[in-house]
Design a protein around this nucleic acid. Structure first.
Lengths: 109, 109
DNA sequence: CAGACTGGTTTGCAGCGCAAACTAGCAAGA
DNA sequence: TCTTGCTAGTTTGCGCTGCAAACCAGTCTG
């Protein structure tokens, strides 16, 4: 025997190679939003995702550390404003993530 | 103001409510396989997913603890054989997971 | 009986996500 | 000018989790 009895399930292993930096729900939400808009502010992300400021801040730091987005700090009048922009790598990572995911999931359809 | 400036992004928050028990890649792979076959053996899962026995064992325990699958221990001759079967709840969890995921992801399409 | 193999389970630890605590700057009141 | 409170974030602490490695029970071979 030795186990290729049933259909081969080609894509399911792709699931095990999903990029963990993207896979975390909060970051997936952030990247999804960033991919749809060219530049997004911290406060908008906070409101849209419903994340607390603390969590949002730390997830942004991780995505920045992974070079999936850039953070720009400025002022709107006297009030600080932080805004984010997805990088080419970030976009690539997100696209690759979705492809792997769909590949791994669709075979059960 | 108060922030409904841009489009509402309805589904992205669904990502934050993804079932963590399903969301883990290894378990997602396991459930995906189980959903496609009525009963699956430990060794088949090991080979198909490429997980180590240890990891596979602990993920199965978690899925069993969450009542997403049942484990049946038997013998094939004198050799122990463990097999798994997805439960109704497990199937429901997987389906719900996929719906939330697609809902959350598709808006960037 | 010794040693190796099969089929798993348990253990230990590093890393992560989350909530709560903290920080820095601005504004208004007394 | 103190101080009280708000805005806009960052840092800290801890509990949980996934992974690899160690372990274990039973079988087989020499």
């Amino acid at each position: 025997m030795s186990g290729s009895v049933s259909r081969p399930k080609p894509g399911v292993r792709a699931l095990l190679e999903l990029d963990r930096l993207v896979h975390e729900p909060a970051r997936l939400a952030i990247l999804t939003i960033l991919a749809a808009a060219e530049e997004v502010e911290f406060l908008f992300l906070e409101e849209t995702t419903g994340l607390t400021r603390g969590n949002l801040s730390s997830h942004l730091s991780k995505l920045e550390a992974g070079a999936y987005l850039t953070v720009k700090k400025s002022f709107r009048g006297k009030i600080p404003a932080t805004s984010c922009r997805i990088t080419r790598e970030g976009r690539r990572a997100l696209d690759g993530y979705r492809r792997r995911l769909f590949d791994g999931l669709d075979l059960a359809e």
